[in-house]
Nucleic acid binder design. Structure first.
Length: 896
DNA sequence: CGATCCCGCCACATT
DNA sequence: AATGTGGCGGGATCG
């Protein structure tokens, strides 16, 4: 409730002012910004996902009853409406704002607002992309449905797809277990392998170009591919466990379709799959017949799947123009190469191996049940681990199928499938021995939900996932290695995916070392979004959704990305240094915290280096501190970003720049705002950069830097960090400052140092952050300068340019390297940093600094609220704005 | 008008 | 039989 209120409050204010304010203040409150967007009035559309979700959640929390009632319509509406503004939603109820908003929006929900994609984002926002291994999150369908205000049926659509990727597993009746993205890479890899077998031949066909190809494709399909019907090809999932019986029902076609759909992407050279081709392929045997109706239905389902995958940031919608015309298609934007083995997570990168060492597999699936497992599955699983039994695939046959006639075929297919599976399995094993092991275990464990945790616990090779968990052991050693891997994982829902891409870039960049650094960051994907959303409101939202953007960044930005991945992992690692134990607890706590925040899940990374300090704090102290840190982190970054964005946007926009945009991809977005949003999105990444952490309450420091690495910058950071840990710290303040700044420029005051100029600087910083620069701090300094640059052009190109300029910093460096940025920047960074420190810090002590920060933050209207509040999650939008502040508070607090 | 895809009926599975 | 799942496709929206 508290949260709720608070959020409301804050938002409200901003809201009120809305347009006007914006124009005036510009920076003032981040919140506003979001609101501003509202201006979108026109309908930004971007979706509010997060915000809305938060709102809903809040609402539900506040009054379940209301929720139910309103649930569908009313609730929705308001939310939706508000959602534009994001924050307002919550508020919506009251508030003047409403009136305002309502006026515009009110009208009706608009179908988009109820879209599966949006719903999925909301759903994903509720859970951490990389939950700690130790904890298991169970999902109650009814609960989620009511919270999100949708019918349960819709939740099934989401969960089924997520289940196909092993992000969740069914535990029991109405209960699903959230696994997060830890095993995503592994799952994708498996799918890719399976896809090679099944569709490898067709690869060529995928190219959209020719129809002819398509035809061929189809033909082959028939031949080659077995019919479908099979169940999950892959289903790694669970092992048989239980019942075998399971088989029942047609296998969830949606699940199978989802896997196949993903496989098509993974085996496609272009990574682009048009809907019609996918539908044809997926129709399976039916083949010829292909009734038009059937085709139509299939396409419908693909849209459902695509919406979820898009929300996950694995694909984005594109259009391929063929001779005939333009056809709807989707492009894979998730990780492509999976490191030899495991690859987990990393995905994005493609590079190789990062570290593969890790392997981690982890578990994934819990196997929900056996049910599915069909023969094939079995194999797969089996492969994974024992195999054994399973039921056979027979069940299927029996079942219904309209086309019983095909049974034979099916059988054949099944056998083929099985063979394939076996092959795949072998390959997989070979490839990833480790994985396999892990997987197996996982699988086994998977069965039991609880099991999972064990995995995590286990250090195994598998853990690689970076896991988070790995805790102690892994932690130490791992650090670097792990980190990278961690990075990979982007996670995050929408963001995450994005991240992944970036990750890739990272990899490139990276040096492994760098990577390690990255780990630092983590941020909850959602959180980011959330934040962003709050700030920018709609824009942000959009950004989120659009993974594509993310990609862009990543690709361009290079670095940008890593962020997500690390999140948790990184944090862990860092923290780990201190002691396993600490890690664990903290981790656990974190998780819990995160989870609660859900949206925010961050990981906090603690720095190993610091760890010592942390340790001092150890346990609880540490934990708390850590958490705090984390939050700060996350928040900060987001906030900063947001702020930056806002300001920048505002400023820029006004000027025409926007461009901060960094990277955004040129691709899509066009509108200024969009850009912004992108930026925001980027921002999330920002996190990569730095982090500050205060470790123990003490001083700590924090800092951060970017994951990305910036070579130069990074180097600094890295070296520094580790060693320095302390000194560097500064960042936070900077960050904070930035935030405030962001918020509104107003902040300047806080910033004291910066006033006017600084202000701008601050803004810039934000940008940078978002942009990529990992090094946020740097940015600051640099930023200012950059900012101007930024103005450069509008969007597209600008992005980078701007950023580069902006970023210069270390993170930048990375980015530079990768992207266009200029390296020079790097140089700047250091400097920047200094600046940063000075201002804030001069004082070395973090604490002292902090206060200042707070002030700044606080300034913001939102004000703070308790950390707790935001913790909760939702309310995000509102939070966004406020979040920043809160963060600040927290940070300060925590230390305290 | 084609692309999307929400909505929810209703069959089948599970309890 | 009740309840959980989820296939499916009509038809509303969107672009």
């Amino acid at each position: 409730e508290n949260i709720f209120d608070r959020s409301r409050m804050a938002p409200k204010t901003p809201i009120k002012s809305e347009p006007v304010d914006l124009s005036k203040q510009k920076g003032c409150t981040p919140e506003r910004n979001p609101i501003t967007p509202v201006k979108l009035v026109d309908k930004p559309q971007p979706d509010p996902w997060t915000p809305t979700a938060n709102l809903k959640i809040l609402v539900s929390a506040a009054s379940p009853d209301m929720r139910d009632r309103e649930k569908k319509k009313e609730l929705f509406r308001p939310i939706e409406n508000s959602h534009q503004s994001g924050t307002p939603d919550l508020l919506q109820y009251d508030m003047v704002d409403d009136s305002t908003v309502d006026e515009f929006e009110k009208q009706r929900p608009s179908r988009k607002q109820k879209s599966l994609g949006l719903l999925c984002q909301k759903f994903l926002a509720r859970y951490p992309s990389y939950p700690l291994s130790t904890e298991k999150t169970t999902i109650s369908l009814d609960e989620v449905a009511s919270i999100l205000g949708v019918e349960r049926r819709r939740i099934y659509d989401i969960v089924n797809v997520l289940e196909s990727l092993h992000l969740v597993s069914r535990v029991a009746k109405n209960q699903y277990c959230w696994h997060g993205r830890h095993n995503l890479s592994q799952t994708l890899k498996t799918l890719q392998e399976a896809g090679e077998l099944q569709y490898g031949e067709l690869k060529t066909f995928f190219q959209p170009k020719e129809q002819d190809l398509e035809y061929k494709f189809e033909e082959r399909k028939k031949e080659t591919i077995p019919n479908s019907q099979d169940r999950p090809l892959l289903d790694f999932s669970e092992p048989g466990c239980t019942s075998a019986s399971a088989n029942s029902r047609k296998d969830k076609s949606l699940r199978i379709m989802s896997q196949k759909f993903v496989m098509l992407f993974l085996v496609s050279k272009t990574k682009i799959v048009t809907l019609d081709i996918a539908a044809k392929i997926l129709i399976e045997e039916t083949q010829d017949t292909v009734d038009h109706s059937k085709f139509k239905t299939k396409v419908r389902r693909l849209y459902d799947i695509a919406n979820v995958l898009t929300s996950l940031g694995l694909i984005k919608k594109v259009h391929v123009t063929e001779e005939r015309g333009r056809k709807p298609a989707f492009k894979w934007i998730g990780p492509v190469e999976f490191p030899g083995k495991t690859g987990n997570l990393d995905g994005p990168r493609g590079h190789s191996p990062t570290s593969d060492p890790l392997p981690g597999t982890q578990r994934e699936a819990c196997a929900p049940y056996q049910t599915h497992a069909t023969g094939k599955q079995r194999f797969t699983r089996h492969a994974s681990f024992n195999g054994a039994r399973p039921c056979e695939g027979t069940r299927r046959k029996v079942s219904s199928e309209p086309s019983s006639p095909h049974q034979k075929r099916q059988d054949e297919y099944c056998s083929k499938m099985i063979n394939l599976a076996a092959v795949c399995r072998q390959k997989i094993k070979e490839d990833t021995r480790n994985k396999a092991c892990a997987t197996q275990t996982i699988l086994n464990s998977a069965k039991n939900p609880s099991i999972t945790s064990p995995f995590s616990l286990l250090p195994l090779p598998g853990d690689s996932d970076f896991c988070v968990n790995p805790l102690p052991q892994a932690v130490f050693p791992v650090v670097q290695t792990d980190v990278p891997s961690l990075l990979l994982p982007n996670g995050i829902s929408s963001q995450a995916p994005h991240l992944s891409t970036p990750a890739t870039s990272k990899t490139e960049n990276g040096k492994p070392t760098l990577l390690p650094n990255q780990p630092l960051l983590c941020f909850p994907s959602s959180s980011l979004f959330m934040l962003c959303g709050g700030l920018q409101e709609n824009n942000l939202k959009e950004s989120l959704p659009t993974t594509a953007d993310m990609r862009n960044w990543s690709s361009e930005g290079q670095a940008t990305v890593p962020p997500a991945a690390f999140q948790k992992g990184s944090s862990h690692k860092y923290s780990s240094p201190s002691a396993p134990v600490d890690d664990d607890e903290p981790a656990a706590k974190k998780q819990s915290m995160e989870r609660s925040n859900v949206p925010l899940s961050l990981v906090v990374p603690k720095k190993p280096f610091e760890s010592p300090k942390a340790e001092s704090t150890p346990g609880h102290g540490c934990t708390s501190a850590e958490h705090l840190e984390v939050f700060h982190f996350d928040l900060a970054s987001p906030a900063a970003t947001e702020a930056a964005d806002e300001e920048s946007t505002k400023l820029l926009d006004s000027q025409g720049q926007e461009k901060l945009s960094q990277k955004e991809g040129p691709d899509e977005h066009s509108p200024g705002k969009d850009h912004i949003s992108k930026e925001n999105a980027n921002q999330p990444f920002l996190p990569q950069y730095l982090y500050v952490q205060p470790t123990a309450g003490l001083s700590s420091f924090n800092f951060l830097f970017s994951a990305n690495q910036a070579p130069g910058a990074i180097s600094l950071a890295a070296s520094q960090l580790p060693s320095l840990s302390v000194p560097c710290v500064v960042v936070p303040s900077a960050v904070l400052a930035s935030f405030p700044l962001v918020c509104s420029s107003t902040i300047t005051s806080p910033f004291s140092s910066v006033p006017g100029g600084s202000f701008s600087a601050a803004a810039s910083m934000n940008f940078s952050m978002s942009g990529l620069a990992s090094t946020t701090p740097v940015f600051i300094g640099t930023t200012p300068v950059v900012t101007p640059k930024v103005s450069s052009t509008p969007s597209v190109d600008p992005q980078q340019p701007a950023h580069p300029a902006l970023h210069p910093g270390p993170g930048l460096a990375r980015s530079c390297s990768a992207v266009k940025l200029d390296s020079p920047v790097c140089m700047g960074h250091p400097v920047t940093l200094l600046k940063m420190q000075q201002p804030s810090s001069a004082p070395l002590t973090p604490k002292s600094i902090r206060p200042a920060r707070h002030e700044a933050f606080f300034k913001t209207p939102g004000s703070l609220g308790d950390p707790v509040a935001w913790k909760k999650n939702e309310g995000n939008q509102t939070r966004n704005a406020s979040s920043v502040q809160r963060r600040l508070e927290i940070s300060s607090t925590s230390p305290d």
